[in-house]
Simulated assay, not measured.
Amino acid sequence: MKRVSAVLAALLALSLPAMAHEIPAEVAKSPPAGAFKAVSGLVKLPDFLPGMGQLFVDPASLPAGPFLAYDHDGALVSTIYMLPIKDLNPDKRFDDLAAPGGNVDHVDVYYNAGHPGVEEPHAHVVLWHVSKADEKRVAE
């Protein structure tokens, strides 16, 4: 229960500062500016992942991210963090995680057993920049 409370506290810390601004132009459309690279070009994954979208990450920020997720039209829909389960303990902190996508409408957290690029079990922390109804933009 303490682990869940710590994750929820981290989510609030992530989402509250992000609510103060709109989506910055440098990340609003795919591909984002800067050091972000298409995840499909870094590891063996499809270019578009149903439920997540097209992902971009700065390789230097792995494994946690942030990963920027875009819909089929290249519009940013979410920022995703992939936090290793082994690091969700009292000895490890994830401070000052950025929300480069701006406003956060809602947050989802779920377990993932691992996949190419982030092989170890981890928690997906998804900062949605679109409404719950607009999540369908990345459903397929």
Rank of each mutant, 00 (worst) to 15 (best):
residue 1 M to P: 05
residue 1 M to G: 14
residue 2 K to V: 15
residue 3 R to Y: 06
residue 3 R to W: 05
residue 4 V to H: 09
residue 4 V to F: 12
residue 4 V to R: 13
residue 6 A to W: 10
residue 9 A to L: 15
residue 9 A to I: 12
residue 9 A to V: 14
residue 11 L to K: 09
residue 11 L to M: 13
residue 11 L to W: 11
residue 13 A to I: 11
residue 14 L to Q: 02
residue 15 S to A: 12
residue 15 S to E: 12
residue 16 L to K: 05
residue 17 P to S: 03
residue 17 P to E: 06
residue 18 A to Y: 04
residue 18 A to R: 08
residue 19 M to T: 11
residue 20 A to D: 04
residue 24 P to T: 07
residue 24 P to F: 14
residue 25 A to K: 15
residue 26 E to C: 09
residue 28 A to L: 12
residue 30 S to A: 15
residue 30 S to I: 06
residue 31 P to L: 03
residue 32 P to I: 11
residue 35 A to C: 13
residue 36 F to M: 09
residue 36 F to I: 12
residue 41 G to P: 01
residue 42 L to R: 14
residue 43 V to D: 08
residue 45 L to I: 10
residue 45 L to Y: 01
residue 45 L to F: 03
residue 47 D to K: 12
residue 48 F to G: 01
residue 50 P to N: 07
residue 51 G to R: 11
residue 51 G to D: 12
residue 52 M to K: 10
residue 53 G to M: 08
residue 55 L to V: 08
residue 56 F to G: 00
residue 56 F to M: 02
residue 58 D to I: 13
residue 58 D to Y: 13
residue 60 A to L: 14
residue 61 S to C: 07
residue 61 S to A: 15
residue 62 L to R: 15
residue 65 G to E: 00
residue 66 P to L: 12
residue 66 P to M: 12
residue 67 F to H: 02
residue 68 L to E: 10
residue 69 A to N: 09
residue 69 A to Y: 08
residue 70 Y to V: 00
residue 71 D to A: 01
residue 72 H to P: 00
residue 73 D to S: 14
residue 73 D to H: 12
residue 75 A to L: 08
residue 75 A to N: 15
residue 76 L to Y: 02
residue 77 V to M: 06
residue 78 S to C: 04
residue 79 T to R: 00
residue 80 I to C: 05
residue 80 I to K: 01
residue 82 M to H: 05
residue 82 M to I: 06
residue 82 M to E: 09
residue 83 L to V: 15
residue 83 L to R: 09
residue 83 L to N: 05
residue 84 P to T: 12
residue 86 K to R: 01
residue 86 K to Y: 01
residue 87 D to W: 09
residue 88 L to W: 14
residue 88 L to H: 07
residue 89 N to P: 02
residue 91 D to A: 09
residue 92 K to C: 05
residue 93 R to H: 07
residue 94 F to L: 08
residue 97 L to C: 07
residue 100 P to C: 06
residue 100 P to N: 08
residue 102 G to D: 09
residue 107 V to P: 03
residue 107 V to I: 14
residue 108 D to S: 03
residue 108 D to I: 03
residue 110 Y to W: 10
residue 110 Y to Q: 08
residue 110 Y to F: 15
residue 111 Y to V: 12
residue 111 Y to M: 13
residue 112 N to H: 00
residue 114 G to T: 00
residue 115 H to D: 03
residue 115 H to T: 05
residue 116 P to F: 01
residue 117 G to T: 06
residue 119 E to Y: 03
residue 119 E to W: 00
residue 123 A to F: 10
residue 123 A to M: 04
residue 125 V to Y: 00
residue 126 V to Q: 10
residue 126 V to P: 06
residue 126 V to L: 10
residue 130 V to L: 02
residue 131 S to Q: 02
residue 131 S to K: 03
residue 137 R to T: 08
residue 138 V to E: 09
residue 139 A to E: 15
residue 139 A to V: 11
